[in-house]
Design a protein around this nucleic acid. Sequence first.
RNA 1: GGCACCGUAGCCAAGUGGUAAGGCAGGAGACUGCAAAUCUCUCAUUCGUCGGUUCGAUUCCGACCGGUGCCUCCA
Length: 470
Amino acid sequence: MPEFRLYNSLTRSVEPFAPADGAKVTLYTCGPTVYNPAHLGNFRTFLFEDLLRRALHMRGWSVEQVMNLTDVDDKIIKRAAERSISITELTDPVCETFHADREFLRIQRAEHYPRATAFIPEMIDLVKRLEANGTAYKADDGSVYFAIDKFEGYGRLSRLDTREIRAGARVAQDDYAKENAQDFALWKAAKPEDEACGAVWDSPWGRGRPGWHLECSAMAMAILGETIDIHAGGVDLVFPHHEDEIAQSEAATGKPFARFWCHGEFLLTDGAKMAKRVGNVSTVADLRAEGVSAAALRHFVFSTHYRKQLNLSGAALEASTEAVRRIGDFSDRLSREKAGSAQLAEAADTLLIEATTALSDDLNAPRALGALFDFIHAANRAFDATGTDTSALARARNVFRQVNAVLDVVPDRGTDDSVLASWVDQQLADRAAARARRDFAAADQVRKALEEKGIAIEDSPTGTRWKKVR
RNA sequence: GGCACCGUAGCCAAGUGGUAAGGCAGGAGACUGCAAAUCUCUCAUUCGUCGGUUCGAUUCCGACCGGUGCCUCCA
């Protein structure tokens, strides 16, 4: 097995990775803020994390993954206030939508989906520790801030020391209570609108609510421990979110917060970052309505390396749809064939090596997909030539299953509809009869009727096969 | 303005100091009643531009051009 390597944002280099305890990977992944449904840009990151999770499994490690659901923040409070409902009433349905979208995209369920509001005591404890060691202070506005000057390593992840701050852009006018403009809020004093929608908790500093970064540190440490193996998220979280997480966590424990920091690049639309603010978002629901399959979406996302920007376009989605159609047809053939050959077994061995190598090399999914298509081509050739080796077939099936267990790009045929199946079978019998009497006009009529129902047919020496294509 | 990343065929995309994977689209052929699927052949003497290093660069260095992101809520 090749060495498993990952790009670590902390060192800006690809490094060998293995879990600290040798067996189980502790993985923290920043999840969605549940004020409205996540778009495909958000899901690109979650798909990258799903790929990471599955690749770790492929290596034989177990994974304990946490994905937080941020259910209290400025946007949530604002929206709840607009609708005169509580934050819970706003966020509960969005959490459900998130899981429905997640399942549609075949993103494996994490072990934990903690909601920020369920970990307020842990967050308060963390702030207490920081206050006790002098890195946190309560300001005149009643909020508690983290003093970045007190934490020596501040800015290490995002290389703040190498940046020049744009004049006038940095200091927010309403942050006058902070000792330093870059200090960030750990605990925010309650405002009337917070009270109105239930976004307040009692604390040693008075009623208030947690700052944005606090939840991730508190929940990661509570569930996974003070030093986790991998912390992942989108690149936009590097600063300030992850930087601040490191500061507050390490200032409290004196231990490294995460050994590896992994960041996924953005999804673009029309050359610009997909963002609600830009107004160029596509949700999973939108894409489903357009008939784009989960397999096609996964193929699309995995066709580009996760650290490279990816542009969403109709043409790209069509190409992916056609690509997974080929994969699906091959998968069907693999199930249907009765035996293979030495060439097939050889192709399978090559696929296993190539795919494992690619995925172990900083999750190179595009290269793994290339290896998969090479295999499909070689296997189709082998099947066309026929063979009698059943163990070769078993080997091919086994390897294909292993690789697909990571990529999961075989389209769902949805052919388990028995009513539809019997109807199609009757149609095909009629067509076979028409062909037998060389009445091709009638036969073509049947094929056209089936196509209108989304059924594609393939004649073969052993009979006619059919499949749902939409 | 500061800090990064990216620029490979019509489109998407991997890649390496030694002569360009794979997918989509396209062209020709085999198979088929016709299709579909599959197979065969074909499809970048060339990797944004200009220099430099080197026996040799798409790959290293520099400049320039173009694109994107972060520096503020953000996957």
